[in-house]
Design a binder for these strands. Sequence first.
DNA 1: TGAATGACAGATATTGAAATCTGTCATCGG
DNA 2: CCGATGACAGATTTCAATATCTGTCATTCA
Lengths: 196, 196
Amino acid sequence: MAATETLTAERILEATEEVLRRYGPAKATVVDVARVLGVSHGSVYRHFRTKAALREAVTERWLERTIVALRPHVEAGEPADERLTGWLTALFTLKRRKAGGDPELMATFQVLIGENSAVVDRHEEHLVEQIARILEDGHGEGLFAAPERDFGTTARAVFDATDRFHNPAHAADWSAPDVEDAFTAIVSLVQRALRA
Amino acid sequence: MAATETLTAERILEATEEVLRRYGPAKATVVDVARVLGVSHGSVYRHFRTKAALREAVTERWLERTIVALRPHVEAGEPADERLTGWLTALFTLKRRKAGGDPELMATFQVLIGENSAVVDRHEEHLVEQIARILEDGHGEGLFAAPERDFGTTARAVFDATDRFHNPAHAADWSAPDVEDAFTAIVSLVQRALRA
DNA sequence: TGAATGACAGATATTGAAATCTGTCATCGG
DNA sequence: CCGATGACAGATTTCAATATCTGTCATTCA
């Protein structure tokens, strides 16, 4: 219908998200995306070389949003230990709200994540960099001890230690009655380990 | 063929493991199990109420083996901090060897694990109890600080923090070149957190 | 001229009929 | 008498024919 607007990668990505949301990852087709946009599917291939590339771009966009949402917690003016707890809590809360609020959409993105491990690896690196920034600040503030090896390695350890509370593979556990306690326990453990 | 021996639950479980190993979780049938044992499938139902119950029992047996293999690391005469590192390393090594050595069998058991979360929960509780025992000993030896809440909660936090290195859901990551470092980093983190 | 189209070949997914499996139970045989 | 059997109904899976989709490209149209 709306050939009124020019066809951009951005518009295609929006349409793709809509189609994924509506039909799920198994049934979403490039033809569906083209239909939503009112163009032929050949036009979509002018902007994305393959269906896989299209899905990858959607995945990247989705993950990027998490990075942006967490940025304030890296930069806030509080002491680093509080910022770390804030960052970890924000990440957990974010993921959990998404998982709880729309389980089907979450399942859809889990499939996409499984298809695009390279994108996910890059995303994880970004998150680990955010943690590393907080750790460096914390060391500067005299709150955190010097890292055993380097900030990156310790940041990765913090990220891995909390995996159970941000990795969508564990989303099913996040509605258990005692997750909050388990999460708090891990955060305490991490804080103890880092303390100067 | 061998109706020479009496049909026991134990023999059925062995046959079921063999069938699962050979055909995988999707194609393994009760009829297959009965054929291996040389009996009619009706006889299998005398010992296990349903196919699901049979699979659950196989899962339980498999998990039990891990508990047994780790027991020595709980009881060894070394200092508790070394026992903890030994226990965590043993668990990781055990899982990783299984995953690397026979990926198909691992995939099979991942399916079974997914089907039997109640059994897995009980199994995890056992493992957490083993950790808690080491933590209590370590506190007695003056190596570990008093737990923030109780030994069980801290033990669970230690278990969760190392999830990435024993949960089969992450098996795909265990062949990465830097897993060893990541594992060592987590263990250091945990040890720092516990130290008196 | 350059974006958009749609027909096309090969790959993938859907569908419904046929085959197999699960779980029950009346019957058999040691 | 008691464990084992195999025929059976309903549920699930398989398989092959059919339909749809992916990715390309010569052609159209603005």
